[in-house]
Amino acid sequence: MTIAAEEEMPRSKRRSSLIRSPQFSSLVILIVLLAVFAVADANFLSPLNISNMMAFLPELGIIALGMTLLLTAGEFDLSVGAVFGLAPVVVMLLVQNGGFDIGIALLVGLLLCIAIGAVNGLIVTKIGISSFLVTLSMLLVVRGAALYITQGFPLKSWDQPGFFVTLLAGSFNIGTFRFYTSLWWFIGLSLLAIYVLHYAKLGNWISAIGSNRNAAVARGVPADAVKVWLFILTSALAGLAGMISAFRISAASPVAGTGYELEVIAMVVVGGTALTGGRGTILGTIVGALMLRSIRNGIVLIGVPGLAYNIFVGVIILAMLILHALLQKNAARN
């Protein structure tokens, strides 16, 4: 009798902790939002509109995955939007003006993103300047570079289909839905990120570093190296997302991705990842990405005036954060 009672307790405790977890409350709110939009406008769930949302979702979502890992380790990166803009600009310039093979140009673009991430990471860890300041400066450098090398003009349109274009931005139809291959990238990378953060040794290290860096270092965890690699990963994912976007719309603009850094960070924290590090959730980030995308899409459909979008987005994000904070407090009290 007593044994049964003892075994019963942790299970119910676990279930209630799942319900109280931040990603769960985000999920509930996402469902409510979707329902509200669906009722307010029948077109919201139309194949065309869903296809549309799914085309945009992976581009910011992919960056958000890297940002989640980075935030969990206690750092963040404000230069992702600029890298999103610079990578395709460099690749297309190399191909169109430099006559390089597209494969080589993509490789150069990737190496460039890696270098940007490495510089961010090394300055943050070795010199000890906060990631806010370092990546804010990097945002200016990278955006400035994109503007300078293009002289501020978007590159002429890209009309050479090929292996890489199909790989990154090909599309296919399922029934009346039209999906891009980028969705597969997002799904695949999400699964990888879930594995790494929650099931691999590395994820244990990432959470420990963000939670208590000194404790992690005292256990022999190479905290600085992990952080540098996460900066590199985030930067590379931002470049990948930029390429996907540029291939999809067949154009590269030096101002593409402006403001994305904040949108991505919003997705991550709305999903329940702590801005202060230590607690990260990839599932939450996926929910957060879906939420911000559907908000942006839904408020257009239900007829909110264009210039008022950001008011709504901002208010909804604030409400989410307040909710998380209240849940957190509640959990601490129990």
Binding site: N204, A208, S211, A215, A216, G220
Partner: peptide
Amino acid sequence: SLAPDLSIARNLFLG
């Protein structure tokens, strides 16, 4: 010397 956001088990074997 512990990471508060990790479980007891994960802290015990950290590193």
